[in-house]
């Protein structure tokens, strides 16, 4: 047991960044590392290292998804992995001159939704090697893959078909 009326917090030199005094506005810092599991989507990310884009095909109704999902939205059944072609066409595009903070240093960049022959849904990706005025809907494009993986969907990207 301790009873110490002279107890005192130790002073530190940390201080606080102040932006304004009236009202009082201060800096509040926050950062975190998540332990993120790709869970049932894991195979998609691993396959990018083999230069393969995996979609999903419904075992029951045959619907083919260009962006993978473990179960079919049409009928609720389980899907199986489905290897997508490495060539497709632009379904829609944009060029981003601004972005979320994490991506600001990559601007400007192009986003595309890719359609693949015989596949029922689309795939979102980036395209490089073109300017905005070169992009058009229906443009034939080809997938390329990073050699050193980041294990996120930017491991695959598209370029104009030669």
């Amino acid at each position: 047991m301790t009873i110490n009326p002279k107890a005192k917090l130790e002073e530190t030199q940390d201080g606080t960044v102040v932006y304004n005094f009236d009202p009082l506005i201060v800096k509040s810092h926050y950062e975190i590392d998540y332990v993120h599991s790709y869970a049932q989507d894991s195979e998609f990310f691993k396959a990018l290292g083999r230069k393969e884009i995996l979609g999903s095909k419904c075992k029951k109704c045959g619907y083919i998804y260009a962006t993978p999902r473990g179960h079919c939205m049409e009928c609720g059944s389980e899907t199986e992995w489905y290897k997508l072609p490495n060539e497709g066409k632009i379904h829609a595009y944009t060029t981003c001159y601004f972005g979320g903070e994490a991506f600001l240093n990559e601007t400007p960049f192009h986003l595309v939704l890719v359609e693949f022959e015989g596949v029922d849904s689309l795939f979102m990706s980036r395209i490089i090697g073109v300017d905005t005025e070169d992009l058009y809907i229906g443009m034939p494009i080809r997938a390329k893959f990073r050699r050193n993986l980041k294990l996120n969907p930017t491991d695959v990207y598209f370029v104009p078909k030669a």
Binding site: C96, F98, G99, A102, L111, N152, P153, T154
Partner: peptide, 12 residues
Amino acid sequence: PIGGFYTGYYAM
């Protein structure tokens, strides 16, 4: 991870 930007999605 591709773009992280809603305006980009609406722009498409």
